[in-house]
Amino acid sequence: MSDTPLVGLVLVSHSREVAESVARLARGLAGGGVLAPVEPAGGTPDGGLGTSSEAIVAAARRADGGAGVAVIADLGSAVLTVQALLAEHAENAENSEHAENSEHAENAELPRDTRLVDAPFLEGAVAALVTASTGAGLDAVAAAAGEAYAFRKA
């Protein structure tokens, strides 16, 4: 634990292997020194291809150090599930007088500053982790990840 909390990163893929591998690759490419937390959330609970909202929420809570959490998703249901969770989260925050929901909130809720970042999965993960590890805030991490769309390859 460093003094200043770092933005955490969550990688949501249809595949557990892809999420874990990209997390490992990003850690490897981000170099030495203090690394921001990066947590994979890949596949369904039974290990199949798909998206698990529980895995996403759990990963976000592990990645949360108090500076916010950037989520990068691969495609389809991974993106839609994060968006649906964020919409629910925003509504619950809006009317937090909902007493019956606060019980769920304990372990089923995303951390307060969780943001879905519009970025390519692998390149965005590397850019986000490098940026987050410098101590940059959530806006800068999101921007760096999104800029990865602009790296032309041919």
């Binding site: 199949g48 798909g50 909202s53 249901s77 968006q83 649906a84 969770l85 919409a87 629910e88």
Partner: peptide
């Protein structure tokens, strides 16, 4: 909420959002 958390494909967040 249940559909969002249990379906595992795009239909989960879509139908889940509809009903929620």
């Amino acid at each position: 909420r249940t559909l969002i958390s249990t379906v595992g494909g795009a239909a989960g967040p879509l139908y889940g959002t509809l009903l929620r």
